[in-house]
Each structure stands twice: as structure tokens, then as C-alpha cells.
Design a protein around this nucleic acid. Structure first.
Lengths: 138, 138
DNA sequence: ATTGCACCTGCAAGGCTATTGCAATTGGCC
DNA sequence: GGCCAATTGCAATAGCCTTGCAGGTGCAAT
């Protein structure tokens, strides 16, 4: 297990099981957004015995510890990704399903504009549209 | 049934049933974002016999005809609202759950910025954060 | 190394939301 | 009024996720 997650888990009194290690490793390795089922399949290639309920319980734990972030990408399904230091927003292509990351400064100050006009403090933006590849095709 | 939905349905060869009329009426009346279950409960107060599967089938039809829009508000559940002429984005308060609408111009040109920097054509933004009431409390 | 035990896991059952097959009903045209 | 395909209600089913429980296992103390 790379990263400090090992330490974090143990320092807080949680056991370091192979299941937890593998779930964390797969999330880090992928870099993208995995569903619980996808994650389960990948972990099973290295540890066939693992059960989907353990995946869910581990994800719940990691999310509560702030190590993993749950995102909804519009389809109704839940996706999970490693929580990063620099928060980012998501661009989701409605045609090909591709997901890109953008940082706050790329939104042209929309956050401060919303704060001024609405008193709304933006944390997380989910932006649906057509990605560069699909927009030109259409 | 207000609006032109009546005509639209009949013109396209669909039957105008009381179930469909009531679903449409409730969606218009509410103005907000209803789940299929909420919608079912409301319609049942006027038409107790209606079944949830009819609600789903009617929603599917109305969505396909462009009369209703399905939105995911982050919780994983599906919500439905009347499709409006002027498209809007959603502000979702992560604390109290309140949903507000904002129009494109309130995003400070974030859409054109994304188009320039990423070639991404924004259709629909789902913005999570703290609404004015909750932000001041926190 | 061994032991002990609370934590963790696997399994199976259950819950919730949404979909589907089918028989009965019904809107809308004649 | 009568016909017939579109529509509905019902029950069964499918996904996704959660939970209860019995057995297994990290890990700290010995």
C-alpha cells in the first residue's frame, strides 16, 4: 500500500487487512472513478475470495476517513476515487461518458460569482456536456 | 392538463389517459424536482388506483418526448421536472438539500472558458455546496 | 512463538428502487 | 355502441446495496 493510508488506518486503530490494502491499491492504481462492482472485479483478480460486501464496507470506511471520495456522475451509479489534496470538479461527456478533471480556476470565477449573487458557496461541480472529441463529431 | 402536452401526446398518437394527465399536472404544479415515488403518492391522492409502474412508464414517455427532464441531484436518486424553454443549472445544498436554479449567465462565462481551454461544450451543471442559509450557519 | 479477543470478513438474507411479462382494461376512431 | 390496439395494474423479477451472524484473523500482550 503506497501513500500514507496504511499509517492512517493503523493509527486510528483499524486493522490492516489484505482486503483493505487491495481495495486502496486498486483505487490508487486506477486513478479514475470506479464503481464498487468494478473495484470488486479487479481486486478479485488478485484475491478471488473477497466479497462485494467487504468492498462496500471498506469504501464506507475510507470515505469516512477522508481518504476516498464518492462521486455521482449523473448515471445514478456511485463512483469512488482517491481524495486528492487539490480539489477538482468533473467534466462528464454525455455522449462518450468520458470524465475529465478541472480545477476551480478553470471555471472563470464562477464560484465567486455565485457567492456574490446567491450567497452560494461552491464545493463541487459536476459539468455535463460534450467533450472536445464528441463536440466536433456532432 | 395545462400546457400543450395534451396536444403533443395526441398528435403523436398516444392516448390521453387520466394517469398521464395527472402525472403531468403534478409535475407542473410542483415546479420542483420530484422522484417517481413522491409523484406517485401525490397522484394517488386524486387517483388512488395508480401503480408505480405506470408512473415510471409515463415518465419515460414524457422524457422521450422532451416534455420532462430527468436530473440526478447527487443523492443517487432520480428526479424529474418539467422541461423549460430556458435551460438552467442546479445549485444543490449539501447540508439542507435545497435545490435552486441558476441560468447560464450567472456562471460568469464559465461555459465559454471551458470551451476555449478544453473544447468542452457545457450543457448542464450540477453545483454542490452550501446555500446562503447554511453557509452563514456553518 | 503463542494466546486471546475484538475487529473484520464471507455468506446469505433482506431492502429498496426500477423494470418487465401478461392478462385485463380502456381511449378514441368507426 | 362496438372494436381493437394502446395502456394499465399486478406480480414477479432484476440490480444495487445493506445487514445479521457465525467464523476467521490482525495485532498487542505475554
Amino acid at each position: 500500500m503506497t501513500h500514507h493510508a496504511t499509517r492512517t488506518l493503523q493509527e486510528l486503530g483499524y486493522r490492516l487487512t489484505p482486503q483493505r490494502t487491495l481495495v486502496w491499491d486498486q483505487l490508487r492504481e486506477d486513478g479514475g472513478h470506479l464503481t464498487a462492482e468494478e473495484l470488486c472485479r479487479r481486486v478479485q483478480s488478485q484475491f478471488p475470495h473477497i466479497n462485494i460486501s467487504t468492498i462496500y464496507r471498506t469504501l464506507e470506511l475510507l470515505v469516512n476517513l477522508g481518504l476516498v471520495k464518492e462521486t455521482h456522475l449523473g448515471s445514478g451509479g456511485r463512483h469512488f476515487e482517491v481524495e486528492e489534496e487539490v480539489p477538482h470538479h468533473h467534466l462528464v461527456c454525455e455522449k462518450c461518458g468520458r470524465v475529465e478533471h478541472v480545477h476551480g480556476e478553470d471555471l472563470n470565477g464562477a464560484d465567486t460569482a455565485l457567492l456574490k449573487t446567491r450567497g452560494f458557496e461552491l464545493h463541487d461541480a459536476l459539468l455535463f456536456g460534450s467533450c472536445s472529441a464528441c463536440a466536433t463529431t456532432a
